[in-house]
Amino acid sequence: MDFRAMAEAVQPEVVAFRRDLHEHPEASFQEFRTTEQIAKEMDKLGIPYRRFEPTGLIAEIKGGKPGKTIALRADIDALSITEKTGLPFASKNDGFMHACGHDTHAAMLVGAAKVLMQVKDQLCGTVKLLFQPAEEIGRGAKAVIQQHGLDGVDFIFGIHIGSQMDVGSVAMMAGASAAAADRFTIKVTGKASHGARPEAGIDATVAAAALVMNLQPIVSREVAAATQLVVTVGSLHSGSRFNIVSGEAVLEGTIRSYDVDLHHQLPGIVERVAKNTAAAYRCEAEVEYDMLTEVLVNDPDAIDLVRKAAGKVVSDPAQVLQAQPGMGGEDFSEYTVLAKAAFARLGAGGEYPNHSDYVVFDEDSFPTGVALHCQVAWDFLNGENN
């Protein structure tokens, strides 16, 4: 089955659909128009689907013969970034942009649906097309799971487009390949006083400053040196006026980790450090800790299948690459806890990285992504040699 040629044939439709989505980016759990556009495509193809609440949908292609079930996943939300690319199809929604390429993910999966419908009767099993909302806030996959989107799925596969990679290249790795991503907020409470009489107050700013420093030894002194762990305090707000001792400070930050056991210990560690540090300065600390995503762990057998599938659809075997782990989070990780899973990156060239307000993804990468979705589904359901 020449899925590459079939993907090339639907490329104009994929590009047109992607550009429409790019012009109309929507925030997490606000992807109402995006969901509707996808639903219209499914209606045209005669593919039944079910909507999630509040956004996103899952469609189902039943093959001509019974068999296993594979889910192909694409996320659909945008980022709160003002686009500066100058593209003729740049965002029309002020303050929002598909800077992470989720518009391309949705378009490539729609393209895969068009191709798979051409071979539907030859499929031995079921292909579920999962258009997931709210990846950017780390809550979409959980919502899909809660709404039974992963029920009955034997294997789930996903693609993430990546700028600054060779166009059409495919990278993957077995095991942990994306970090668990957490968010924390720490409120430090002291007692305000005049800046000329600090002894009359309890300075929340001093406690907060100490806390920023005391969080770092979690990385350098509390875990093994080889452990991949990042603690970042991205925001600290304290006080209201230059001559007042602050009575309250708020810190916000993120922690990225690769060790599954450590990930689940981190909320307790942060709370201990926060409360004890605050107490040392006569303050109190409240901690809100949100475990946004789990560690993304690719099944070795699944990755082997994807690697072989990629070799069949790339234009040059050298374009199938070994990925390197990064500290970015990806809520596809939630699926990897429940089912055999594999996640790959698709190269799309460009000068600027994902999440940049200048990022541009080369549309010539799309046929590889469309074909890879189809080849992975075919190989899993029908066997690699068919």
Score class of each variant (00 low, 15 high):
Ser163Ile: 02
Ala208Thr: 03
Lys40Leu: 15
Ser169Ala: 14
Pro133Phe: 04
Asp203Tyr: 06
Asp94Trp: 09
Ser235Arg: 10
Lys92Val: 09
Ala141Phe: 06
Cys374Tyr: 08
Ala90His: 10
Leu57Ala: 08
Ile47Pro: 01
Leu21Phe: 10
Ser356Gly: 04
Ala39Val: 11
Ala207Gln: 00
Ala344Met: 07
Leu372Asn: 00
Leu251Glu: 00
Trp378Glu: 01
Glu199Thr: 15
Gly195Ile: 04
Thr254Cys: 03
Ser220Asp: 09
Leu123Val: 12
Pro300Glu: 00
Gln147Thr: 07
Asp379Asn: 09
Gly234Leu: 02
Glu8Cys: 02
Ala341Ile: 10
Gly64Trp: 03
Glu36Arg: 13
Asn243Gln: 13
Leu211Lys: 06
Ile244Pro: 04
Gly190Lys: 03
Lys312Arg: 12
Trp378Phe: 08
Leu229Trp: 00
Thr227Phe: 00
Asn93Cys: 08
Val376Thr: 14
Ser238Ala: 13
Trp378Leu: 01
Lys187His: 00
Pro66Leu: 01
Arg183Ile: 05
Gly383Arg: 04
Asp43Gln: 10
Gly64Pro: 07
Leu372Cys: 05
Pro133His: 03
Ala309Tyr: 04
Asp75Arg: 02
Cys100Ala: 07
Lys68Cys: 05
Arg183Val: 08
Phe361Asp: 05
Ser315Gly: 11
Lys187Trp: 03
Asp301Glu: 15
Ile218Gln: 06
Gly328Phe: 12
Glu135Ser: 11
Ala207Tyr: 04
Asp290His: 13
Val212Phe: 08
Thr104Ala: 14
Asp154Ser: 01
Asn298Val: 06
Val287Asn: 04
Ala224Lys: 13
Glu83Ser: 05
Pro25Gly: 12
Ala200Leu: 09
Thr69Leu: 07
Val223Asp: 01
Asn214Pro: 08
Ser238Ile: 00
Glu288Tyr: 11
Ala344Arg: 05
Val297His: 13
Thr368Ala: 04
Thr34Ala: 08
Ala344Cys: 15
Glu60Val: 13
Ala279Gln: 15
Ala210Lys: 10
Ile218Ser: 05
Leu87Ala: 05
Ala174Asn: 12
Leu130His: 10
Thr55Gln: 07
Val245Lys: 08
Thr232Pro: 10
Asp20Gln: 14
Pro317Met: 03
Gln122Lys: 15
Leu211His: 00
Val337Trp: 11
Ala371Thr: 11
Gly56Lys: 11
Gly190Glu: 03
Glu26Asp: 11
Val144Cys: 13
Arg241Cys: 09
Met42Pro: 00
Asp20Ala: 14
Arg139Glu: 11
Glu284Cys: 08
Glu135Thr: 07
Val167Asp: 04
Leu266Glu: 09
Arg73Gly: 10
Leu150Glu: 13
Gly311Thr: 07
Arg73Val: 05
Ala210Gln: 04
His194Asn: 02
Val188Arg: 05
Lys84Ala: 14
Gly234Arg: 01
Ala285Ile: 06
Glu36Gln: 15
Met213Phe: 12
Thr34Gln: 03
Asp121Arg: 09
Ala302Phe: 07
Glu31Met: 01
Tyr281Thr: 12
Val250Gln: 09
Leu292Asp: 11
Ile218Thr: 05
Pro353Asn: 11
Pro300Ser: 02
Ala27Gly: 12
Pro325Lys: 03
Val287Leu: 07
Ala196Glu: 11
Tyr281Cys: 09
Gly347Glu: 05
Val233Thr: 09
Ala196Asp: 00
Lys312Leu: 15
Ser80Trp: 02
Val127Glu: 00
